[in-house]
Write a protein that binds this DNA or RNA. Structure first.
Lengths: 363, 363
DNA sequence: GACGATCAGTGGATCGATCAAATCATAGGG
DNA sequence: CCCTATGATTTGATCGATCCACTGATCGTC
């Protein structure tokens, strides 16, 4: 246990520890950074002094000398109204925990909404961060190009869609595979006429997911003509598209690009007196809070965000230590969480532990 | 525009700028920190040199000398499964944006789940942060006591429930007022027998909110006997409690401590063939994603999280500059977002803009 | 015209760590 | 016994900013 010390007291420095242990400053430094250079007994003496004094190296001094801040920058995008960044939450938390294991921290920053580059360069010049984690590769390549140009280390959550010769490490989740899982599941519970409800054609992620549905349907020899619909990502748009599709009474399955869209489908079913999971099967994407709480529970594709975060941190460390990364990109597999929107006797939705939601309520 | 420069190049330092401008280092420093000390023409000359070179002060050096990191620590709690920290999201984002205005950044850190104190002391010793923002005051006073003991600056989101002589600045949202708004709204649309569905008695926040319902009911002279129910915060528990309450056919209103509970009530209504907003009115708390997307749209109490964040940042600055804070605590008013669970012709739920949800999907 | 007061700007020391190179100790080989 | 090789530890310089004490210049005043 290190002693409690008030901030107004002087914190012990490396020199303090050195004096206490009867060695030089450098030896203490070595004890921390290159313990193998010290003789066993010296190391223990220094260690004892460190513990007694409750010494922690001053980050600023270390940072100044080594030109490394042990900080990883993450641009925290403006949250739009209604956005479910509950996902981001899982991701960021794992990021924080994993980086902590090696003494790194996550630095959040923001930038002008209209300028995706804002904020990056300043942090670099100020040597405030060692590397960046970038999450929105589908919005374009502006950030990655900037960072490559200035030679800043970074990794991305998301494959380099538009940049065939990108040279940065990345991790992504196979959206096509997710849609494929969803489709196969719908087939396995008896559906044949399965519609796709997705985003506009301009969305790379959306088209990728859609391709999974197309592929699966083709594999089974099912016709997809008239079944693939694209719309904007909101509940109401999805509800209306679902109504149109349901005019065709043979349609009994919906594979959706997001939970929001899937929930729109559920609303339409409700308005038509159709029973989700019995008359019609619906699968969403992202396993968001909405999927948990919506009646009667929404089957959804879940991204392994925790694993994504862990792998990204590993990649960051590789880049920072100039280890070659091979392969450059890693594609992770999503999983399917089955609820009552496809299987009537699946567990009831939303058994959310008490503590969790209390935290939710506080923000 | 500052010139693009590779990381491997040497960044310009204060000395570089000084040489360029033909002044001393200190003068450049003053140009940045105390421009009023310089003559107008000198200032402009220095400014020009700074712009030409694209100089940004090195954070580490500044931090070492001034003993101030311009970082604010925020412990990012483990997100439990199903937790809606979409709220946290709004809050954190505003925090990031507001602190950025004064050159501060948010440093996320985590700690052992079983030790609320883990992480704080280390960051302080390492002079990695200037202050903390604490969000979970209802879990106890362990953190605040620690920080007070070591004399570290901090502010809290949440009043000091258990600590009458706490001396730190805080911001909170008046939960009782929120429940009061909810109850008044239900009364205004014609309900008289309004039930409370809340958390266990051990929850300070829960009891605070409940008191608002009690007060409102009493003000109208409405009887609350048998109408106040406490349960665990999950959809299914709420659904079952709602069924019990609905045995009493006179109950037509539900005021809930959270959206999760309110959604449980909606499920129960659905199972009984009762129409939300027409036969029974339901109000939730927090205006979470669930409230947006649930059929038919859930009226909910919304916390002004953005304002909370802004005020907290203001308080942090006061504390850091040793300005006295008066009054110590600030209580903000929540608002009510009306949807179809109380008013049948309210706007349709979930018109979520495209961009938002695409971000959601990426995490 | 000498004086102190104010303003503008300078130079050296300093924050606390690490780096690079020097020193001291010990041992082994000729 | 000297000399080199190796290991363990120390010393001085350094990272890039700010703090502190100081110098020159300008100005008003008696």
């Amino acid at each position: 246990m290190s002693p409690i010390r008030r901030l107004t007291d002087q914190y012990p420095t490396l020199a303090t520890v050195a004096e206490r242990a009867g060695v030089s400053r450098q030896t203490v430094s070595n004890a921390l950074n290159n313990p193998e250079l010290l003789r066993e007994d010296t190391l223990q003496r220094v260690q004892a002094a460190i513990d007694e004094l409750g010494y922690t190296p001053n980050r600023a001094a270390r940072q100044l000398r080594t030109r490394s801040s042990h900080m990883i920058g993450l641009r925290f995008e403006p949250a739009q109204e209604g956005t479910s960044n509950a996902l981001m939450d899982r991701f960021v938390h794992t990021l924080v925990e994993t980086t902590a294991e090696t003494g790194h921290h996550i630095l959040l920053f923001s930038g002008a909404a209209d300028d995706p580059l804002d904020g990056y360069d300043e942090l670099l010049r100020a040597t405030a961060v060692d590397a960046f984690v970038i999450t929105d590769t589908y919005t374009g390549t502006a950030e990655t190009e900037l960072l490559r140009r200035v030679g800043a280390p970074f990794v991305t959550f998301g494959r380099p869609w538009d940049d065939p010769d990108a040279a940065h490490p990345w991790v992504d989740v196979d959206g096509a595979r997710g849609a494929c899982l969803a489709t196969e599941h719908l087939v396995s519970v008896g559906h044949r006429r399965i519609a796709w409800l997705g985003w506009e054609e301009t969305s790379r992620i959306g088209e990728d997911r859609r391709s999974g549905w197309e592929q699966s349907m083709a594999d089974h020899g099912f016709d997809t003509r008239g079944l693939g619909v694209r719309t904007t990502d909101n509940v109401d748009a999805a509800r209306m598209e679902a109504h149109k599709l349901l005019e065709d009474r043979t349609v009994t399955g919906f594979c959706c690009a997001s939970d929001t869209l899937a929930i729109g489908v559920l609303h339409a079913l409700h308005e038509r007196g159709l029973r989700p999971g019995i008359d019609v099967g619906v699968v969403g994407f992202d396993d968001s809070l909405g999927a948990h709480v919506t009646w009667p529970g929404l089957t959804s594709v879940r991204q392994p965000l925790e694993q994504v975060a862990r792998e990204l941190v590993e990649l960051v460390h590789s880049v920072l230590s100039h280890r070659p990364v091979e392969p450059l990109g890693r594609m992770l597999e999503p999983t399917l969480v089955v609820r009552r929107s496809t299987v009537p006797d699946a567990p009831r939705p939303g058994t959310i532990p008490r503590a969790a939601s209390s935290a939710a309520t506080r923000g």
